[in-house]
Structures are given as structure tokens and as C-alpha cells.
């Protein structure tokens, strides 16, 4: 296990979120593209960071309902029994 030593690698860290979200200025983006193309460690960090974010994003795409029993108790607590849909 190694720590990031190159100051360039460290400077890139602060912009990583904006970089993977695509919200970075074009100038900075080009600069990071260039570094990532040459630096294997940063390349891996970017790829695995993207993957991490997309895994969490995808994990939320299903099951938007809470469990039926939880939902029933919620409606009861709120005195909304008359409106519960089954």
C-alpha cells in the first residue's frame, strides 16, 4: 500500500468530485484528463470512484415503498387510517 506522493496527484483530489460529476471548468478538466492518462494510480482512483458512486446510485433505484407493516403503522400514528390504500 502506498500513499499518494506526487503533489500533482494530491492537487487533483480536491477537484475529483466535480471531475466525475462533469461540473468542472473545461480548462481544469483537460488538465486532469492529461494527468490521469499518465498516472496509473490516479486513473484507478477515478475509475473506482466513479464505480463507487454508480453502485450506490443504482442500489437506490428499486424498492421505493416502505414495508407494508411500517406503512400501516405510519398511517395509524398520523390518524390517516381512512385514507390508507391497499
Amino acid at each position: 500500500m502506498s500513499e499518494v506522493k506526487d503533489p500533482k496527484c494530491h492537487a487533483l483530489l480536491g477537484s475529483l468530485s466535480d471531475y466525475v460529476d462533469g461540473t468542472l471548468s473545461e480548462e481544469l478538466c483537460v488538465e486532469i484528463d492529461r494527468h490521469v492518462a499518465e498516472c496509473q494510480d490516479c486513473h484507478i482512483v477515478v475509475d473506482t470512484l466513479r464505480k463507487t458512486i454508480s453502485l450506490y446510485h443504482d442500489s437506490a433505484s428499486g424498492n421505493l415503498e416502505c414495508p407494508e407493516a411500517v406503512r400501516e403503522r405510519l398511517f395509524k400514528t398520523l390518524n390517516l387510517n381512512d385514507y390508507i390504500r391497499h
Binding site: 437506490a60 424498492n63 421505493l64 415503498e65 416502505c66 411500517v70 406503512r71 405510519l74 398511517f75 398520523l78 390517516l80 381512512d82 385514507y83 390508507i84 390504500r85
Partner: peptide, 17 residues
């Protein structure tokens, strides 16, 4: 209250998660 129930229906899932 009916509108409130609709709000609970729409948002209880995401809030629980």
C-alpha cells in the same frame, strides 16, 4: 387530510430509505 395522506403515500418510501 386527504391531500396529506397523498403526500405521505408519495414520500414515505424515500424518507424511510
Amino acid at each position: 387530510r386527504e391531500e396529506f395522506a397523498r403526500m405521505v403515500d408519495a414520500y414515505s418510501g424515500p424518507i424511510y430509505r
